[in-house]
Nucleic acid binder design. Structure first.
Lengths: 247, 247
DNA sequence: ATCGTTCGTCGAACACCGTTCTAGCATGGT
DNA sequence: ACCATGCTAGAACGGTGTTCGACGAACGAT
């Protein structure tokens, strides 16, 4: 894996150190290496020693820059949030824009394995996360959504997308000997329809629909449902504010 | 930690074994001990050795009953799902019942720390989970929700509750020296309102509303929004089915 | 030019983790 | 009386996050 040219020994080696002075270790370099490992090997494979190896150094060296593993994951989290893009606010098109934001959020999460696990219990307050919050709330407020509903809308959207992609990523712990890969939805559906009808009439009756589950269309339906509901409430709140401004 | 009375040596010790034959190790006993540890010390503290200690035995003994740690977590997961209750289907009251189901689900999750982390990547298909699925789908179908929407409604509800409680549990990794406990929402709001207005106008403007965040009312709003949207779509689907049954 | 301080690296070690191996015990069927 | 089976458990292996302390390179001040 060390994609380093072996450093021809005649050009006086810089002080016989396995790491030259070039490419000094920085928090950014550590974060990038960690993300690369995360994408290729998942959170399981993301260990301090593994990251240190990728930077050819020892694990102890990382601690000076990132404090501990949670600190590193904080950086990874914020960095990836920086990848999510939000369009410039366009006022009346806020509903479509919010849906677009949700789609981009999910796409980014799917691009980086196990991101949901990292985001759990981690408040998004890094520099990238703040810029992201600012822009999303901006889209909502530009659309005339009242401030309180704007922050609710923003935070709940995060919860929604995280919850959905969490189940979606259910690339389970792999039962190993049974089936090698993940159980296909049709296999699940087959099992469900084989249950005793007297005990599980509703499951058996609706089993076929478990097979037809399509993450993309289900996500779109959920987002539509959410955005529409939010818009209804925003309109109602504005009507109430106009009717009795200080009641 | 071994809260065992030292076994007075005169009453002939039962074959010089630290564990008497009483209280034989079973999968249920292991699961119960694991849940108890999970509730009191979180997922971090839930190790095989810790569970074995609670049963005063060695870690190797557990593996005969539960296979490995993931197997144990499967059992824990299913057992806790068994705690969630769902009312007998009542037909026209399905909307209120679904909300009640959501509330019960969240309450159960909050009662058991880190349950969301365990549920990640784990398809709920244990015996308790099946019974639970059966009953929830039953409520939806009794309410006249079409089968495909019933399974969507059930699965999305799970995603929704998980996503919400995930952020809610944000008892973060504790920055240690900064503030001892979890950052209160008002502290967050204070920080947000102190940001430079020129860079973060929307955040600063809506910062007060971050302070007023109330998990209970926000969750109720989210569930209302979801159930209403689902009902709308169910009604539309039924109308379409009546208008043109085979178009 | 020399010192002292600070910034940064890193080998070694600690305590803990999940898991496996293997030997052994207690019991029940033949 | 025997073996087979179900079950327990000590010891160990390889891996983890993290800390310690010794070490070196760079730099400002004397």
């Amino acid at each position: 894996m060390t994609s380093e040219v072996p450093e021809p020994p005649w050009q006086r080696s810089p002080r016989r150190s396995s790491r030259a002075r070039r490419d000094p270790i920085t928090a950014e370099a550590i974060t990038d290496a960690a993300i690369k490992i995360l994408d290729s090997e998942g959170l399981e494979g993301l260990s301090m020693r593994r990251v240190a190896d990728a930077l050819n150094t020892g694990p102890a060296s990382l601690y000076w820059h990132v404090g501990n593993k949670d600190g590193l994951l904080d950086l990874v989290f914020d960095q990836i949030i920086g990848e999510m893009d939000v369009p410039p606010p366009q006022g009346d098109r806020w509903k479509e824009q919010l849906k677009q934001i949700a789609l981009s959020q999910r796409a980014t999460i799917l691009r980086h394995r196990d991101l949901v696990a990292i985001s759990m219990g981690r408040i998004p307050m890094g520099p990238h996360a703040l810029r992201y919050t600012e822009r999303v709330v901006g889209v909502l407020r530009a659309g005339g959504v009242p401030d309180d509903l704007a922050v609710s809308g923003y935070l709940l959207l995060f919860a929604l997308v995280n919850g959905f992609t969490m189940d979606e990523m259910a690339e389970p712990v792999s039962k190993a000997e049974d089936h090698p890969g993940a159980p296909s939805p049709s296999a699940v559906s087959g099992y469900l329809s084989s249950l005793p009808v007297d005990q599980f009439p509703n499951i058996v009756a609706s089993a076929p629909h478990f097979a037809q589950w399509d993450n993309d269309v289900q996500f779109e339906m959920l987002v539509d449902l959410y955005v529409d509901g939010l818009a209804q409430r925003a309109a109602a709140a504005r009507r109430a504010a106009e009717a009795g401004p200080d009641a």
